[in-house]
């Protein structure tokens, strides 16, 4: 009998880590894709700073992200709506308004997150706001132009 034991040794117990590695690769791919989607909505700019009070946490809701792409001297280089670039001409704004209207037709409760640089002059932001209002009006169906002004909250030092 001792001879048999030597011939068939006890089974080795090991944790099989291959599924975990598979899952981790899937997680990496997922996060890489999600971060690319986020980047397409986000244009690098310095958001306006507000001291306190009215600014709220972003809510999970159906939204379009509208960026006024900053340029030199408070001007802009166009608008980026969900990653699609529109030029700042009246024609570009009209095409952007039509794209927002399409969104309102699909979901009348759509919110538009407006991101503009703090140095951008109001004359370049106002067409984006007007486009949102026009889009809601064109879309009909009880769509309300809900605009979220994206800001950065100043962190006050508590004494």
């Amino acid at each position: 009998m001792p001879r048999d034991r030597r011939r068939f040794p006890a089974a080795e117990i090991e944790a099989n880590l291959t599924p975990m590695i598979d899952v981790s690769f899937l997680l990496i791919i997922f996060f890489a894709l999600v971060s690319q989607i986020s980047d397409s909505e986000r244009v690098e700019l310095s958001l306006p700073r507000v001291s306190s009070g009215a600014a709220a946490e972003p809510e999970e809701e159906a939204r379009f992200v509208l960026n006024a792409i900053p340029a030199q001297g408070g001007a802009i280089g166009g608008y980026a709506l969900n990653g699609v670039i529109y030029d700042a001409s009246p024609d570009g704004v009209a095409r952007m308004a039509e794209a927002i209207a399409e969104g309102y037709r699909r979901n009348p409760r759509l919110a538009v997150n407006l991101r503009a640089d703090r140095a951008t002059r109001y004359e370049w932001v106002e067409p984006a706001m007007r486009a949102t209002t026009t889009a809601a009006k064109v879309a009909g169906g009880g769509a309300l132009p809900r605009l979220n002004l994206v800001v950065e909250e100043e962190r006050t030092n508590v004494p």
Partner: peptide, 26 residues
């Protein structure tokens, strides 16, 4: 990897806030 990812993304979006503006419909 997860820790690095969440640290980076948290730093980008943590201080973004929204001011809600209900524009007149027409």
């Amino acid at each position: 990897q997860l820790l690095i990812y969440f640290l980076l993304t948290a730093g980008l979006i943590a201080n973004e806030r929204h001011l809600r503006a209900e524009l007149p419909p027409s």
